[in-house]
Nucleic acid binder design. Structure first.
Lengths: 352, 352
DNA sequence: TTGTAAGCGTTATCAA
DNA sequence: TTGATAACGCTTACAA
C-alpha cells in the first residue's frame, strides 16, 4: 500500500521534475543536446534520432520553456514596437500587418503605447528591453537626449517607422510626410487656391505632424504663399475638434478657400461642420485630409486625402528588423509612396 | 600606461560579465539575495542597505533580466489577451484600458489577434502559454472541444470578456449582450414598431453576435413578433456592407419599420444609405446600432445605439485576472451594464 | 535582517 | 553525428 501511494512521489524519475527537455531526452534515450538540436537545428541530427525525438516530444506533450530558452540563448524571438496609439487609423492597420509579418517569420510582437508622451515612451522602451525583445520598432525619428542615449547603448537593432529620411543613420520605413503634403499643396494651387488654412494635428511629440505642417509651409512658400497665423490651428484626433476648428479658421479674414487637415478625423469633422454651415464643397471651399480610412470615402461627401499604404509600412518594418537580426547583408530603409486621392471636397478656387 | 589601458579588459571584475545582479551586489557590498530582495520585497531589507543598493542599481544602469527572473520564479509578469481584432471600436478601447490597468499593477499585456478564426485562436493561445504568460484574457465563452481541453489542462487562470454569464464556471467580465438587445426591442416596441428587420453581425465564431441576435429574437417572441427570414441578413464590420444590406432588408415586403444593426459601422452604413434613398429617419424608418463610437453621435444624423463601457470591461478584466493571480479571496466576474442611447434615428412607427 | 548556495530549463562549447 | 557539462542571471529555501 504505502509503496503504491508513495510511488508518484518517491519514484525519482517521475517526481523530480515535470515534463521538460531532460525528460524527453531520457525517454528517447538521447542526450539533452540532441533534443535541443532537433528543435533548433534539425539538419544536424540523423533522421532516425530526429523522428524518434519528435515522437517522444509529441507523446509527452512537451512545450519548451521560453524563459529558459531566452536565458540560455540570449534571444527571445520577440520584437517590441511602441506606438503613440494602437487603435487609430493608420497605426491600427500597420500593427495588424506587422503582427502577421512577424508571425510568418516566427517572431512575436510585443506592443506598447506611448500616448504621444515622450517620457512614457522611454519607460515603455525600457520595459520592452527588460523583457528581452530582440529588436525595436519605433515611430518617428525625433527623440530626447536621454532616449537617444538609451538607444545608442542598446545592443539590439531598432528602426524608425512612419517617417522617411534617406540620410538617417538608422533605417526608416515610412512615407515622406513633408513631400506628401507638398504634393497636396501643388494640387490645390493648380486649382487656383491662394488663401489657405490648416487644421493641423498637434506637434507635441509628433514629428510626423510637424513634418506635414512644414511640408505645407515650405510648399506654399515656393509659390510665395503663406498661411496667416490665425488660420493655422491645431487639434488632436477627433471629429468634434475638426468641427470646432473649422469654424475658427473660417472666422479669419480674408477667408481661406482651401483648408488642409492633419488627419482623417479632423477632416471629417471639418467637412461635416461645413455642411451644417451650409457651405457647399467644393464650390465655396475645398477641404482635404491626411490618411485614407474607410470613412473618408464612405461618408455622404467623400473627402480628398493623402493615402499611405500603412499596411506596407507595418509589413516592411517587421521584415526589416528581422532581416537585421538574421544578418541580411542589405538592410536599408524604404520610402513608402503616398498618393493624393481626389474626391468630392476639392475643386477650383471660388472667384472673389 | 599599460595598466590603465588594459584595466577595463583585464580587470576580472569588469570583464567577466556585463552588469548583472551579481555586479550590483559586489559594488554595493551585499549578497545577491539582498539585491533581489530590494527589488521583490523591499520591506524585508533594512533601509540603509536598501537605499545603498538602489543607488548602485541606478549608477550602474542595471536592468534586470526578465528571462532569468521568469525561469527562477516561475512567473513572467505578463498577461496574454486574445482579441478577434485589435483596432476596432469597443475592442480598441478595452485594450487601451486593459494595458493601463495591467501596467499599474506591474504586468505587461501580450496581445494576440484571432481574426474571428477558432483554429487561429487556439494557436495563439498556445503561443502565449509557451511564452509563459501568467494568465489569459479571452473574448467570448464558446469554444471548440480542443480549445476547452487545452484550457482545462492549463495551470494558469483565464477569464472570458465581453460576455456575461452568471452561471459560468469561469469568471466573465462584460455586458449581457442578449439583455442589451432585449432592452432595445422593448424600446422600439414601445414606440409602436411591429415589423422588424435585422442587419446582424455574422455569427461565425462570435458568440456575442449570436447572443445579440438571440436577444432580439427572444424579446420579439415575448411580444408575439418575429423577423421574417428575408429581413434577417448579416455582414461583418463595414459601412459599405451596412449600405448594401439596408437595401436588401428594405426590399422585403411588408417593409420593416425598424431595423436593428449588430454593430456601429453597419448602422452607420444603413443610416447613410437611407439618406441617399431619400428615406427620412425616423419619420419613415427607425434604425439602431450597437456600440457607441464617436461617429455614432457626430455624423449628420446621430444614431440611437447601445452603449457599453468597453474601457470598464478592459480595466475590470485586467484587475480580475491579477486578483486571481495574487490570490484575492473573492474573485468573481462582473456584469458591465449597458444602456440605450436614444438619438435621432428612432421615433414612433409610421402609420400604415 | 542578511548571506550561502542550490536550482530554474534551456543552449552551446568542447570532446569523443 | 552525438554526448557531457558548464553556463545563462536570477529567486528562494535554509542557515546564520
Amino acid at each position: 500500500m504505502d509503496k503504491q501511494i508513495d510511488q508518484s512521489t518517491t519514484n525519482p524519475q517521475a517526481s523530480r521534475k515535470s515534463t521538460g527537455l531532460r525528460q524527453v531526452a531520457a525517454v528517447a534515450g538521447v542526450s539533452t543536446a540532441t533534443v535541443s538540436r532537433v528543435l533548433n537545428n534539425p539538419e544536424s541530427v540523423s533522421e532516425g534520432l530526429r523522428t524518434r525525438v519528435l515522437m517522444v516530444i509529441d507523446q509527452l506533450g512537451w512545450v519548451p520553456n521560453a524563459a529558459a530558452r531566452a536565458l540560455s540563448s540570449n534571444r527571445t524571438g520577440a520584437i517590441g514596437a511602441i506606438f503613440p496609439a494602437l487603435g487609430v487609423g493608420d497605426f491600427a492597420r500597420a500593427i495588424d500587418a506587422m503582427q502577421d509579418a512577424l508571425a510568418a517569420r516566427n517572431y512575436l510582437l510585443l506592443l506598447a503605447r506611448s500616448r504621444y508622451d515622450a517620457a512614457l515612451e522611454l519607460v515603455q522602451a525600457r520595459k520592452l528591453v527588460e523583457r528581452g525583445v530582440d529588436g525595436l520598432i519605433l515611430v518617428g525619428s525625433t527623440r530626447s537626449q536621454d532616449y537617444e542615449q538609451f538607444l545608442r547603448r542598446l545592443s539590439i537593432p531598432y528602426i524608425n517607422s512612419f517617417v522617411f529620411d534617406a540620410d538617417s543613420a538608422i533605417p526608416c520605413v515610412g512615407p515622406d510626410n513633408a513631400r506628401a503634403m507638398a504634393e497636396m499643396v501643388d494640387y490645390l494651387v493648380s486649382l487656383g487656391h491662394r488663401r489657405f488654412g490648416m487644421i493641423a494635428q498637434t506637434n507635441r511629440n509628433n514629428d510626423r505632424a510637424a513634418a506635414r505642417r512644414d511640408g505645407v509651409r515650405d510648399a506654399l512658400a515656393r509659390y510665395g504663399l503663406a498661411i496667416p497665423p490665425q488660420a493655422m490651428v491645431e487639434g488632436e484626433w477627433s471629429i468634434a475638434e475638426g468641427r470646432k476648428l473649422l469654424r475658427q479658421v473660417l472666422a479669419t479674414s480674408p477667408r481661406p478657400t482651401a483648408i488642409i487637415c492633419g488627419n482623417a478625423l479632423l477632416a471629417i469633422g471639418a467637412v461635416l461642420e461645413a455642411a451644417e454651415m451650409h457651405i457647399v464643397l467644393p464650390r465655396d471651399l475645398s477641404i482635404v485630409g491626411y490618411d485614407d480610412t474607410e470613412l473618408m470615402s464612405e461618408l455622404p461627401q467623400p473627402i480628398t486625402t493623402v493615402r499611405v499604404a500603412s499596411d506596407r509600412v507595418g509589413k516592411l518594418a517587421a521584415d526589416l528588423i528581422v532581416d537585421m537580426l538574421e544578418g541580411q547583408t542589405s538592410v536599408s530603409g524604404a520610402r513608402i509612396p503616398s498618393e493624393i486621392v481626389v474626391r468630392s471636397t476639392t475643386g477650383p478656387a471660388p472667384q472673389d
